[in-house]
């Protein structure tokens, strides 16, 4: 089998039934093993893009996961390989107990009992929630819910982990715990976030969206060095600058890789 990218999106457009143009000509490819942050203001289209990665929405254009185009035939395999963790853990934890939630995916895959149990144990271990099997979701703290939600996807042993706003509503300790969990997982990651501070430790590449388009796709250091583009699209520079490599040029706006030569790639203010 020859080389396939983990995610390959070409010219994807999506219009919601009410006429909202949520995605316009998205081109994005992510290699296996990469860690990518997807940033942008509210309403940029980030969540809509995520829903296309496992076929929950199907727009115009092409989405391939490890070379497989998304169609009715492949969709089961694709949903196993791309694990999506949604923003609100209360949406993801719908079963009576944590065990049932984490077992939901493996059971739908038709795995035998021993294998389901092994995977549930392993997934909960990976997020530091071993021993919580019998607990009900509403007995968990918010940070625990977030981690349990990740376990519900890990138990399907996905190759790509997609997280929508994982830091939202978490206190600093919860964020730190989640960060450690995410760092320990050997998967390709796409993380939707507003928070560049935590992104710095996790991702080396930043894709920025606004108005349904990708407006920048560059190494993290370059994006951080360009205060103008951050401000323009409603993002803040992380409070501490210690982590910014001293070599980063503060005026690299011109170096950002243009994605759509047609519209000039990065917009100039």
């Amino acid at each position: 089998m020859h080389h396939h990218r983990a995610i390959e999106i070409t010219n994807l457009c999506y219009i919601y039934p009410d006429g909202t143009e949520a995605l316009r000509n998205i081109d994005l490819s992510i290699e296996n093993g990469e860690s990518v942050a997807l940033v942008g203001p509210n309403g940029a289209g980030k969540s809509t893009l995520i829903l296309h990665l496992n076929g929950l929405l199907r727009g115009e254009g092409e989405v391939r996961i490890f070379g497989l185009p998304i169609n009715d035939e492949n969709v089961r395999e694709i949903r196993r390989r791309v694990g999506v963790v949604f923003q609100d853990p209360d949406d993801q934890l719908f079963s009576p107990t944590v065990f049932d939630d984490v077992a939901f995916g493996p059971l739908n895959m038709g795995l035998p009992r021993e294998e389901v149990e092994r995977r549930v144990g392993k997934a909960l271990e990976a997020v530091g929630m071993a021993g919580f099997e019998k607990r009900a979701a509403f007995h968990l703290s918010f940070g625990q819910k977030k981690r349990a939600a990740i376990a519900t996807v890990l138990s399907m042993e996905p190759d790509v982990l997609v997280l929508d706003e994982p830091w939202g509503n978490l206190d600093p300790r919860g964020r730190r715990g989640l960060l450690n969990v995410l760092q320990s997982l050997p998967v390709t990651r796409l993380i939707v976030t507003h928070d560049l501070f935590y992104t710095m430790e996790l991702c080396d590449r930043v894709v920025m969206m606004d108005g349904g388009r990708i407006i920048a796709d560059a190494p993290l250091a370059q994006i951080l060095a360009d205060e103008g583009i951050l401000e323009e699209h409603g993002l803040e520079l992380p409070q501490t600058e210690l982590k910014i490599p001293p070599t980063a040029d503060r005026k690299v706006r011109g170096n950002l890789r243009p994605l759509h030569p047609a519209n000039g790639g990065v917009k100039e203010a």
Binding site: R79, R80, V84, F86, Q92, F94, F104, N108, R113, V153
Partner: peptide, 21 residues
């Protein structure tokens, strides 16, 4: 919420049949 929960179920391979241990 119902719609979002349903999406979360689909994302984990739900196809209308429920399976339990």
């Amino acid at each position: 919420r119902g719609e979002r929960v349903y999406l979360a179920m689909l994302a984990r391979g739900y196809d209308g049949r429920s399976r339990t241990l």
